[in-house]
């Protein structure tokens, strides 16, 4: 497996507890709302798999998931 495989991440707003780890790790991909502190994905949500794995693992609310692999060409 090459480290360049891109995957798409998603946030389950119901599970999100606003821990903000995702935004800290990947500020280009996640934005935590200032009022309610619920995270959402900005743009395509594409990340290299190893980086996506770190976010998934670090999310205290287990709210971040990898939804589908994307083709490396994207």
């Amino acid at each position: 497996m090459s480290g360049t495989e891109l995957v798409r991440v998603a946030v389950d707003a119901e599970r999100c507890i606003g821990g903000g780890q995702c935004e800290m790790l990947e500020p280009e991909v996640f934005l935590v709302d200032d009022d309610e502190a619920i995270s959402s994905v900005v743009g395509s949500g594409a990340l290299p798999r190893p980086r996506a794995d770190v976010v998934v693992h670090r999310c205290p609310g287990a709210a971040v998931s990898i939804v589908e692999p994307q083709r490396p060409s994207e």
């Binding site: 507890i17 903000g20 800290m24 500020p27 935590v32 502190a37």
Partner: peptide, 14 residues
Amino acid sequence: TRLRRLVSSAFTPR
């Protein structure tokens, strides 16, 4: 979760 969201934005890493 509803209660936590009242205050959670004050404690995000950002």
